[in-house]
Computed example of a mutant assay.
Amino acid sequence: MTNMDLYLGGIFVQNSTYDYGDYVYEEDCKPESRGHLEAVLYSLALVVGLLGNGLLLVVLAQRRRTWSVTDTFILHLGVADCLLLITLPFWAAQAAQDQGWSFGTPFCKAAGAIFNINFYCGIFLLACISLDRYLSIVHAVQLYSRRKPRLVHISCLSVWLISLLLIIPDYISLEAVKNARQGPTVCTHNYPHASQSVFDWRLASRLLYHIVGFLLPSAVMLFCYSCILLRLQRGSQGLQKQRAVRVILALVVVFFLCWTPYNITLMVDTFQSNYKAPEESADGVCGKTSLETALMVTSALGCFHACLNPLLYLGLCRNFRKRVLEMLRCVRGAQADSRCSLWELGVGEEALPAHEKVVLNQMTKPEHQVQSSQS
């Protein structure tokens, strides 16, 4: 009787752990079409991103003599996006080719590092802009201004330096690895297993990414915009400040819509891997687990963010849209427009109206003198 109980228990245990619903017939698995679709999406993002960021950099180049604080932040955001766009052909080739990644480990390290640099620079620069808006609207303190341009450059250079330091663990661990299941070569992190090392490098690298790169800046921005929205509801703020909050909030929301799915999936992979044996991760559909597929899809969504910021500027910033249309029509705008804000982010721009009035008065003074002499 005891043996029968053990035998029945063995049947039930085996039946409960083996899920036939996840079984996929090999003829139904078509990684080629999926890879080609991914390559097409990367190519589309590359074309749209290069056009949009190209126009952005050209407009900024035309304003290089009168750069404002906002122009500096927008320039660094655009450079980070352009760096990511340069790596998209490599990811597209990996998805489209049967052999996978064919560019070797050095290019794998560079492409993976740039991917993370784009994320770090984007979220840290948005946190700097959000902190400036919080201090300006809630506490009436101007953190950045044209009178202190050095602080702006120090902040942007610090963002790049911190980003470079944070990608060191990823740069070291990235390798072009041949799939053990006779699959294609992939550009991925190759950490030493926890049992083979005293220090768990994989867990430490992931926690650094999650906490310093995502959670802390997100908490700062959430606090800043919560206080800003409460202040705007209680008091009567100027139209310029309300418009600045609207534009920045749109940039932040789009950033998190693109990057949050990847970060959540990566968190799930981080904590799930600590309770999963290495051999268990070899099961999957078409040589990939559902979690690996989710990471691939969400990372592609993060790459799409590199082509969205110029579209937001065109849609929300009418001065930038006007300047782009004038440039495309080969029409030179008025000289006074070169000093006005194109972005309406409000960063360091509260001190501008008095200065702009002096410039405009100097420009219009001869006209008034001519009109008065004629009269």
Rank of each mutant, 00 (worst) to 15 (best):
H153V: 12
S155H: 11
H153L: 13
C108A: 12
L165Q: 13
H76W: 10
L165M: 15
L126V: 14
Q142I: 10
G78H: 02
H153C: 09
I74M: 05
D81P: 01
H76N: 13
L88I: 09
F103K: 07
A80I: 00
F115W: 05
N116G: 09
K148D: 05
G78L: 00
L77S: 06
G112F: 01
P169Y: 04
D71S: 03
D98G: 10
V159G: 05
D132C: 14
F115M: 06
P89I: 05
Y144L: 11
Y134G: 08
I86C: 10
R150V: 10
Q97K: 13
V69F: 02
L174G: 02
G78V: 01
L143V: 14
Y144P: 03
G78P: 00
I162Q: 09
V152W: 00
A92Y: 09
H76A: 04
Q97N: 14
L166S: 12
Q97P: 04
P89R: 09
V141C: 12
G100W: 01
A127L: 06
L88A: 09
R147M: 00
L164W: 14
L135K: 12
Y120D: 11
T70R: 02
P89S: 09
S173R: 13
A92F: 07
R133S: 02
I117L: 15
H139N: 07
A93R: 08
L125H: 12
G112E: 11
C128Y: 12
S136K: 11
S155L: 11
V79A: 11
L131H: 15
A95L: 02
A80D: 00
Q97H: 12
L165A: 13
L88W: 08
Y134K: 14
V152A: 12
P149E: 11
K109R: 15
S155E: 10
L126T: 14
K148G: 01
A140S: 13
I167P: 10
L77E: 02
S145F: 03
A96W: 05
P169K: 02
T70N: 05
P89K: 11
I129L: 15
V79C: 02
W101R: 09
C82R: 01
P106L: 08
H76D: 11
G78M: 02
V79P: 01
I129A: 15
F107C: 09
R146C: 12
L77F: 02
S130I: 03
D98H: 12
N116S: 12
L161D: 07
L85R: 10
Y144G: 08
Y120R: 06
Y171K: 08
A92W: 03
C156R: 10
A176Q: 01
F124D: 13
I86F: 07
I74L: 06
S173Y: 13
A110R: 08
I167G: 08
T105M: 04
G112D: 09
W91Y: 13
W101L: 07
T105V: 04
F119P: 00
L77D: 02
N118K: 05
P106T: 06
L166H: 14
C156A: 14
I129E: 14
F73D: 01
D71K: 03
L165P: 10
Q99Y: 03
L161A: 15
I162H: 09
Y120P: 07
A80K: 00
I86S: 05
C121A: 15
Q94Y: 07
L85N: 09
C108T: 08
G112Q: 13
F124Q: 15
R146M: 11
L161P: 00
A80Q: 01
S145T: 07
V69W: 03
A93L: 05
D98P: 04
I123Q: 09
